[in-house]
Design a binder for these strands. Structure first.
Lengths: 201, 201
DNA sequence: CATGAAATTGATCGGTGTTCAATTATTATT
DNA sequence: AATAATAATTGAACACCGATCAATTTCATG
């Protein structure tokens, strides 16, 4: 009983993406199932494969959606923040989003494409957009720095914050003696910026 | 045709662990299969489950083995290094090991126990041992620092290096314009130590 | 040699991603 | 309006996976 005109192709895609994202947030990557996503919106597995082509493409689309949500989260925090330390706002925003969207955030990093292929350009562009937001704030914080240096420092600082965030969320590494990962990350970022300023002036 | 006396229980465990580690290194976590491990050493699935009890315990044991290898790698590098910057040696050792043992190293972080249970104490102790090696070098580098401060800084610096290492190994995040992650990590660690020294003196 | 305990097996279960012939629904053509 | 062509949808089938457990085989003990 096909319902060819119930939804257009793009409506169907949107339906699956929405349900897929909800599903991933609920059960986590380990228990995520494309079959279930299809079932929950009342279609069969075959239709999902007709729309997305493969599990990889579905997961990529879901992760891209998470990246978009993350981007708007960061931009909103920047816009509404009273704090004039915009980089600290970014760091806190990084942790906030990861904590609030644990499962979908983790999936961004834990899902690797089959046989280790790199992500397609459109996806990498989304990641670059996120990095761009950071780079812009770092450029503002270091007016005298060269663009190359800013980009490279942005990557390094994101890596720094990411490392702290990962260690705070993964229970496997929860060494006893709790730390304050956000404060530690802020300290490391602050030191790096101070060092860059000292060198650049 | 059971071969009850071919191997003792611990020999069997060692066999499975060895083959499991080799298998994981070859095919990666995504294609790793307990069935295959059993088959390759000439036993059936049931026997593997008789020895390890569950997939979780097998993976935990394999990851623990990777941690041990990592530990000896770091200690060896420290012992044989001509460089008097022992912390730089540690940082380079971190990257070296991750690059040389990609699949098994990634599994340490990507394998999460079922339903999110925390790792058992004996496993967390292994992780703590690794952290201890780092903490010892940081304590030596900051003679005037309080032990609490050293431990907390050690965690933060490991997180920093880890973040850089992850970004350098995950192809999904390979933003164009390659960086030198090792150098960046060394710079961040150096700045943090300099800041700690400036504060502590 | 007999017996009972321990080790080993592999069929079985419910699940996964993926494929694809068959069916159904829509559109185009006559 | 009837028919042909096209597109969408289905779900059974396949080859895997982790996990279970009754049946079998091995071995030490009496």
């Amino acid at each position: 009983m096909g319902r060819r005109s119930d939804h257009t192709r793009s409506e169907l895609r949107e339906l699956m993406l929405e349900e897929g994202h909800r599903q991933l947030a609920e059960v986590g990557l380990a228990h995520f199932s494309a079959r279930d996503v299809a079932k929950r919106i009342g279609y069969s597995v075959g239709t999902l494969y007709n729309v997305f082509g493969s599990y990889d493409e579905l997961m990529l689309a879901i992760n891209a959606r998470t990246l978009s949500l993350w981007l708007t989260h960061l931009r909103t925090r920047l816009a509404e923040s009273e704090d004039d330390d915009r980089i600290a706002t970014l760091v806190r925003g990084y942790f906030e989003f990861a904590a609030e969207h644990r499962q979908t955030w983790v999936a961004i990093y834990e899902y690797n494409l089959s046989d280790g292929r790199p992500a397609p350009d459109w996806y990498q562009a989304k990641v670059a957009e996120l990095m761009g937001v950071v780079a812009a704030e770092i450029a503002a914080a270091l007016p005298r720095a060269a663009p190359d240096h800013v980009a490279s420092l942005a990557r390094s600082l994101v890596a720094t914050v990411h490392g702290h965030c990962v260690f705070s969320l993964y229970r496997t590494f929860n060494l006893l003696g709790e730390t304050q990962p956000v404060e530690a990350a802020l300290a490391r970022v602050g030191e790096a910026l101070a060092a860059a300023r000292a060198l650049g002036s």
